[in-house]
Amino acid sequence: MTSTGPFLVAGANRPLGALIALDLAARGLKVVATRRHPDAELDARLHQAGIEIAPLDLTDLAAVRALAPDVSGVVLTPILSISGPAAHAFSEGGVERGVVFSSNNVAIVGADPVYDRLRAAEADVLASAPGWAILRPTMIYGYPGDGNLSRLLRMLGRLPVFPRLGSGEASQQPIHVEDLARLAAALVANEWDASGILAVGGPQILSHREMIATARRASGRSGIDIPVPLGPVRALVSLVTALGLKLPLSPAQLARVDLDKAAVAPADIPASLQPRITPEEGLARLAADLEL
């Protein structure tokens, strides 16, 4: 049976985990936020919200099993290929409600070592923790280190002529980190009664070309896009990678450029929880955070 103890959020030193912990605390729930690396500014914010902070290494499965009987539910924000064993241990310890994170790319990309590991981890959670939710978000953005749209905004700020790879027609459906945190908190708190695989994306689907135009408006920089055929770029990147040199884009990333990335078989999200931060708003906020 699930405990009546606090909710545990692992990975609270990162924006997603911190936002989930704060959302749960705002609901009046007792929350323990765990992380491996302290952050004085963020820790102070969590303490102010009444959240207990504790260290936890999710690879220490003995420590995870010891915690399991004392928590009501868990949210493990590290990607499921990393957090999967801990999810299994929590479930074995009696935690009936948990949320873990996979990727929408699992449903898009074929055979690939990264996504093969995610598929295997999803299968394990589905088999061992039937009441748990596996969120498959599309591209997550909304904080300076997101590695996707923050990088695009910086590049647009530097390059008046932007090399746009591929056709520009592939669909994108980015989800803002705040919207994703709300969904995860609602799931573990049983406000959203759903389990299994849940694909989620933002409120708007844009083409790659439209995404660049939206990001350009957010950055306040004018410029033009020059389409670049993928074939020659793939050949060059493969050659350079074979020589042992690192580039901003890997061959695997290039292979996904022209794939549609909107949420595949999207989850039925209650109206009150629907993602609401549009790319226009989210990118404008991100550009301000980046001081562009």
Rank of each mutant, 00 (worst) to 15 (best):
G84S: 14
D23I: 05
S103M: 06
T4S: 13
L159C: 07
Q274A: 14
R276M: 07
D260L: 02
Q48G: 08
L206W: 00
R164N: 05
R221S: 06
I269S: 06
A213Q: 14
A40E: 14
S103R: 07
L180G: 05
V9M: 06
L16N: 00
I175M: 07
S171W: 13
V188R: 01
L198G: 02
R27G: 14
A121C: 11
G110R: 06
I205F: 01
L180Q: 03
G5Q: 08
R65P: 05
R97G: 03
T77W: 12
D258V: 10
P275K: 06
S272T: 10
I140V: 15
G157D: 00
A255D: 11
L249Y: 13
R119G: 07
M139Q: 11
P78K: 03
Q204H: 06
G282M: 06
P248C: 06
G110E: 15
V32C: 06
P229C: 07
L152T: 07
I175L: 04
G84C: 15
A86D: 01
P275N: 10
N148T: 14
E178K: 12
T34Y: 04
S195K: 13
G201A: 15
P229W: 13
R285S: 11
G142E: 14
N105I: 02
A62M: 10
A18S: 00
D60R: 07
L247Y: 09
A287D: 03
S272E: 11
H208K: 15
G142M: 04
S3D: 15
L24N: 05
I134E: 00
A89S: 14
A215F: 01
L29P: 01
L283D: 02
P38A: 09
L259F: 08
L153K: 03
H208L: 14
